[in-house]
Amino acid sequence: MKLSLKSVATLSAVSALVVSPLFFAGSASAQAVRFDGSYVGAGVGGSVTQGGRGNDESKFGGNIQGRFAVPNAPVSVRGSVLFDGDNSVVIPSLTYDIPVANKTNVYVGAGYGFVQNDGRTSQLGNKDAAVISAGVESEVARGVVVYSDAKYGINAYEGGAGSVSLVGGVGLRF
Results as ranks from 00 to 15, higher is better:
26 G>F: 11
11 L>M: 06
170 V>A: 07
52 G>L: 05
62 G>F: 04
156 A>S: 15
164 V>L: 14
165 S>I: 00
55 N>M: 01
104 T>A: 14
28 A>G: 14
32 A>F: 03
125 G>E: 01
101 A>M: 13
159 G>S: 02
163 S>M: 07
46 G>W: 07
71 P>D: 02
66 G>Y: 05
119 G>L: 05
144 V>C: 06
63 N>M: 07
65 Q>H: 15
35 F>W: 07
82 L>G: 00
146 V>E: 07
78 R>S: 00
159 G>D: 05
52 G>S: 02
62 G>H: 00
104 T>K: 03
108 V>E: 10
170 V>Y: 09
113 G>D: 00
97 D>Y: 08
136 V>P: 06
165 S>Y: 03
128 D>R: 00
151 K>L: 12
26 G>P: 12
12 S>H: 11
110 A>L: 14
20 S>K: 11
163 S>R: 02
109 G>F: 03
45 G>P: 04
27 S>A: 10
91 I>F: 00
153 G>L: 01
50 Q>H: 12
62 G>V: 08
87 N>Y: 09
47 S>W: 04
154 I>G: 06
145 V>C: 03
162 G>Q: 07
147 Y>P: 06
150 A>N: 01
60 F>K: 06
33 V>A: 13
123 Q>D: 06
90 V>N: 04
77 V>G: 03
161 A>L: 05
31 Q>E: 13
174 F>T: 06
54 G>K: 07
25 A>E: 12
29 S>Q: 13
47 S>E: 00
63 N>F: 06
60 F>E: 02
122 S>K: 08
59 K>F: 05
78 R>F: 04
129 A>Y: 02
117 N>V: 12
3 L>Y: 10
25 A>M: 13
166 L>G: 04
131 V>R: 06
126 N>C: 07
52 G>E: 01
138 S>H: 14
11 L>K: 08
7 S>F: 01
4 S>Y: 09
111 G>K: 05
80 S>L: 03
12 S>D: 11
34 R>K: 14
22 L>A: 12
86 D>F: 08
157 Y>A: 04
151 K>W: 08
132 I>F: 11
27 S>I: 04
20 S>Q: 12
166 L>F: 09
104 T>C: 10
115 V>Q: 10
51 G>Y: 06
30 A>M: 08
109 G>N: 10
147 Y>S: 02
116 Q>N: 15
158 E>Y: 13
165 S>F: 01
26 G>A: 15
154 I>L: 14
124 L>R: 01
10 T>Q: 14
105 N>H: 01
32 A>E: 09
136 V>I: 14
34 R>F: 05
55 N>C: 02
